[in-house]
Design a binder for these strands. Structure first.
Lengths: 357, 357
DNA sequence: TTTACTAAAGTAAACGTTAAAGTAACGAAA
DNA sequence: TTTCGTTACTTTAACGTTTACTTTAGTAAA
């Protein structure tokens, strides 16, 4: 049996003795076509099991109804839930989403963007990889006439004229450190992040600024970069621990980093929060199930995804009026069992306490 | 400014005074073209910033180099890591992957499959939704000449002539229950699952069979279906708890179900493992970070993804020789801090114990 | 009756590529 | 010299749609 040849408009048209265009119009609900004809076309189409060829449609209409979404990772609560929202919202606008995973790798990122351009997606949402250096690819994408929106992670400095939807990394970070200070901690470390991307820079900046503002000396050996993953947290804690003098509390730059810290602490028999306390940026579905339940700055993944799609849609529909600039989504401090006053002052039993900024 | 018109083969051909086909062949490394010409074409192409139009290419070549992947959920460790593997493996074969999320919803599932067919993907991998009833859609996809492979979750009974890559649900389940029995538990409950899909049926079957084989009465009120998510675990535990008589140990049909059990136990002040013990099917990156660290039957997500892509590739390349049947991936019992002999007989400190079947 | 408009079709061309078949030039084998 | 094969192209015809323009018939207004 040869390659199965699909039913086409011509097949339907042949059956009814009309032209292909009539069929095409009928199926798309074009007003040119009479109700009777429309009904007939639809009937025959479903009889034959017709499935429109989107490639042909897209080629002809010069519109793909496809969105590109590039993220560094999937198996991670933050990205997982953002992706789900983007898919759902895009679908509401009749767009399909093409997901690409860069694995925090700049080369793959470039290749993915080229593929997306090649597929002629109508717009792209990207969360850049951590070690991103060369931003020329983004200018190229723009030159190809495809709207591009940065989500959560933006190259630092951002390419000029770029549009972004981000969370208030700096403000959230300030919230977290202020909480640690309020509990009474005076030695606070910071694990994770780096300087190439906004989220690392701004979260660490919020940390140092808040300490300085309170007149607390910033100790460089307690600021341990190394990325955003669990390994970064694990290794970071180990380095801190080997250095000898350990801070009373650490601020983890992401949720996976905090997980790494938990794992390392467990391995070294350091009790959280008695020996060392933890607070982090970013939440997860299991945050409240860890022991102790992790307090964190929560990023509203849903709003992030929704806003990104909304703004990208505007960019697609009105390419002339490029808004540009950044839409900043506020964060929220969620206090559970870490980084709270030792004698349960702040935390209500069961329910977490929420503080907005 | 009008819709940016892209560089095409014709533009490059015009520059060089050759035909479009020559350019097309040169860019694809066709042997017809001389080295000199190839070099020139490539140079001009990159000068002009040429990006091939994949829609046109796919339409003409009647091959999309696209794979469809339909899953019930993303923000879930199991699916997250399977998805990542599928993407990576597909890429090795020069295929892009189109991901679709059904949200455990049969209607969306059907729609997604229709869209994938419409995009003329070359093959589809699907993990069906939990409450799936009507399997006619799968026959339709097949009739459209698109190879279809079920991964992990298969409709029960499976459509005849179907191909699947699954894990050894029954065997893994037996491993888990035997472990619980070995620890000395004689009252064991089972939370999660349902009857429409293989994973629920087989895991529960393994549970009941093993109990029976050991002469332990199976108590229906301790088998609580309700799906595969965290809510199923939470609600399941609550129902068990309200019933009064609680088993000494519960077997959670999936990892998220176990999470729900943990959350519910925490809310009801039931200590794990002292008051009630837990073991589950499926692992996660945070499994070892829970307190107590959760023992489980681990599914090799990577092998699952790899095998699925490998077999699908064969189905695409040799549509005549449909292998059919199921490829079963073995599971592994990982013992951590739950469901182990109370006085640390089985568990080595730090490292988890692994048992293969 | 003429003109103008509208509804419901049809025709031709285009979208950007690839596949298949054709051609010209040249060298080697018969 | 003829025949054959090879190399490096070109030409033609798809692939399955949509878009823009044209046609035809019928109806209403002038």
């Amino acid at each position: 049996m040869k390659k199965q040849s699909h039913i086409t408009l011509a097949d339907i048209a042949g059956r009814l003795g009309v032209s292909r265009v009539t069929v095409s119009k009928a199926l798309r609900g074009h007003p040119d076509i009479s109700d009777g004809m429309s009904k007939n076309v639809r009937r025959v189409a479903s009889e034959l099991g017709y499935s429109p060829n989107r490639m042909a449609r897209n080629l002809s209409a010069r519109k793909s109804h496809l969105l590109g979404l590039v993220v560094p990772k999937i198996a991670h609560f933050f990205f997982g839930s953002v992706i789900e929202t983007v898919y759902a919202k895009a679908l509401e606008h009749k767009y399909e989403t093409i997901l690409m995973v860069s694995h925090e790798n700049e080369e793959q990122e470039v290749q993915h963007l080229q593929t997306l351009v090649s597929m002629r997606v109508d717009g792209i949402i990207i969360s850049v990889s951590a070690r991103l250096k060369d931003t020329r690819i983004f200018d190229w994408v723009k030159k190809m006439g495809i709207p591009l929106l940065f989500m959560d992670r933006v190259p630092d400095p951002p390419p000029k004229g770029s549009t972004a939807v981000i969370v208030d990394d700096y403000g959230g970070s300030v919230l977290a450190i202020e909480q640690a200070l309020a509990v009474g901690y005076t030695t606070i470390g910071c694990i994770g992040g780096d300087r190439n991307v906004n989220i690392g820079r701004n979260r660490v900046q919020g940390y140092t600024d808040t300490l300085k503002r309170q007149g607390i000396p910033v100790r460089e050996e307690w600021i341990i970069a190394g990325g955003y993953g669990t390994e970064a947290g694990y290794n970071g804690f180990m380095r801190l621990h080997e250095n000898g003098q350990v801070p009373r509390c650490v601020f983890a730059v992401t949720y996976p980093v905090a997980l790494g810290v938990y794992a390392a602490a467990k391995a070294r028999n350091i009790r959280i929060p008695q020996d060392m306390d933890v607070i982090c940026f970013g939440d997860s579905d299991v945050g409240s199930l860890l022991t102790p339940a992790l307090s964190c700055v929560s990023q509203p993944t849903q709003r992030l995804g929704e806003e990104s799609v909304r703004i990208l849609m505007e960019m697609i529909d009105h390419p002339e009026s490029v808004p540009g600039g950044s839409r900043v989504i506020p964060t929220e401090l969620i206090l559970r069992e870490t980084c709270v006053a030792s004698k349960g002052a702040a935390v209500l039993s069961g329910e977490a306490l929420r503080v907005r900024n």
